[in-house]
Design a protein around this nucleic acid. Structure first.
Lengths: 333, 333
DNA sequence: AGAAAAGGTGAAAGCATTTTCATTTTATGC
DNA sequence: GCATAAAATGAAAATGCTTTCACCTTTTCT
């Protein structure tokens, strides 16, 4: 019932001595009279007293803590990464602490305080750009760090090549005979986060160029990362006088919006409109969406493994894992 | 060179500010002028200043840690709850620590160690059954606890009434004129976790009974929690000589499998087959699935609020919030 | 322009414990 | 007995940090 944590003062009061004596019982027991000591020990027991700060400091010192800094996870792709991380960390003796970031200032504040007061053994930073100075502090504080989706020469990372992915998607559509291909990306590019979508667009552009094709400017659409907006953008594309015959959506989540638009407009997929996504979310399989798989779960798992390796043996050099991309052909192309 | 460990005072002197400002740079960096902050950070770097965990713990009365114990989150519903929790906790000064549980023993081990070494201020336990003894220990350790989906008189909780939800789903289908209604639930009922699906089935049964209808035994199907298995179970139902005209899937995730089966078998939804799900996951909206919304994000958010309220004022009595369910009518019924 | 709100900062009051130092009590030697 | 060393204890200072409060600047609004 009484949830108040007892302090050394409570003990001293109960035992009828000063706090100094209580402290001595704890630290230098032989310096206090056996009878007094006994009385104080009883008081300690009956109050369930535990010198908290110390216990905490000690616990935090050695106990393994691994932090994950991630953009606030509305996007399913972050969730799937997190799932990979959690599953890899599951049986380890490490605690998993989640820091969600929702603004650049927020990220900065974490980067300032975590190395110093975070008590972390390791840190995984997902899809966020970190500047040189905070990074140096991280390293000096002895926190092993792994980036996901952010390359840095001195820090281990797990990356995918979004440019190649964009190219793969485009080449797949080209190979199916499409020439009028539109691109749908998202606009949610907070300045503090990576924006892989731009890279995918770049790859898409490269492939189109290589095939000698122009992309009409109105075929490159950006919409906020919601189903409705994606749906709306797709609808506008399809209502144009010369609509595209294929759409490359830079994220599966948006591809689903496109699919829904096609359904609503009675546009047959893939006959009248081919759709390809990117990510291979869980839902992509359900929706039979052709997509570029980037194995999100795996990226999280690998990040944890990189971290654990380095924690076990800090002399190991940083590694940079490039996760392969894979075209998953389903029903929408 | 200099042997003494630098303290916050050294930093403040070097940076020409008060110790308060240095402390703020560490704890609430956005509350200090960028230029000042920069100067202080430089001082910190040049002195290799490292705040002492013990002193910090002392000044900081609360440890600022909130744990979440959740079954290992493959299921999207857990993820959405977690999202609610993370978002509610976002700006608070609490750390969010995730403990994923994958077996009964695992859960027990957490319940044993967390009260002692966890250093937690609060704990949210999601969809897990906790016995009396471990719970007592939790309370004695002074860890405020909130349950999601597990009722207990002395502990705050956020619950939904799955029986009512099952009834709502059934009544909706009945009202649409269906009489041959099948039920599809999942079989993943680890002994340590709650199994709301059984409750939903119970509600479903009640409503059918109230309408004077029998449920043929073969119309109650259980399948593992994957798309494929749900799809397969649905296919079997639909291939029966007298197939159901409606299916109530106990989770949206499985409802999507049913939808896919219908699509593959060219069964028209909702004309030939009505489908209703449960949860209202993000995907439900995309799939235009009629479902019972249980507002998963909200349940996480509420749990955090309950916890914070009690942490702020432990004398507040435990609350039990019953989250209302809501029928979301979309295109599949 | 002046008033009100917001932003930034330092002085000082905690926080729970250890440690120093002075004081009281007890034991010891002659 | 009586000084005197030794032992036991408490008051208070110190620890290194956070946080509140009040004050002083800016900015914003009217």
């Amino acid at each position: 019932m009484s949830s108040k944590k007892p302090t050394i003062y409570d003990v001293s009061r109960l035992a009828g001595v000063s706090i100094a004596t209580v402290s001595r019982v704890l630290n230098t027991p032989d310096k206090v009279n056996p009878e007094t000591r006994q009385r104080i020990l009883e008081a300690i027991d009956s109050l369930q007293f535990m010198p908290k700060a110390e216990a905490r400091a000690r616990a935090l010192q050695s106990t393994g803590r691994i932090g994950v800094i991630t953009p606030f996870f509305t996007a399913p792709s972050f969730v799937q990464r997190l799932r990979g991380i959690a599953s890899a960390l599951g049986r380890e003796k490490y605690e998993l602490i989640i820091y969600t970031v929702e603004s650049s200032a927020h990220l900065q504040s974490y980067l300032v305080s975590l190395p110093l007061t975070g008590n972390l053994d390791g840190l995984i930073i997902v899809s966020l750009a970190v500047e040189a100075a905070p990074m140096r502090r991280l390293m000096e504080a002895g926190i092993e760090t792994v980036f996901i989706e952010f390359p840095h020469p001195d820090i281990s990372s797990v990356q995918i090549d979004d440019v190649v992915g964009g190219r793969m998607a485009a080449e797949h559509l080209l190979q199916k005979g499409h020439t009028r291909i539109a691109f749908l990306g998202d606009t949610d590019l907070p300045e503090y986060a990576m924006h892989p979508v731009s890279m995918r667009l770049m790859g898409f552009r490269q492939a189109m160029q290589a095939a000698g094709l122009q992309i009409p400017p109105e075929f490159v659409r950006l919409a906020p990362y919601t189903h409705e907006k994606a749906l709306q953008a797709a609808a506008e594309l399809l209502q144009a006088p010369q609509p595209p015959t294929a759409i490359f959506a830079a994220t599966d989540f948006q591809a689903l919006g496109v699919l829904k638009a096609a359904r609503q407009m009675q546009v047959k997929v893939p006959e009248q409109l081919a759709i390809i996504g990117f990510d291979d979310l869980d839902m992509a399989e359900y929706a039979d969406l052709t997509t570029i798989r980037q194995h999100l779960d795996e990226s999280g798992r690998l990040a944890v493994e990189l971290l654990l390796t380095r924690l076990a043996d800090p002399s190991r050099p940083p590694q940079h894992i490039h996760l392969p991309l894979q075209l998953i052909q389903r029903q929408t192309t």
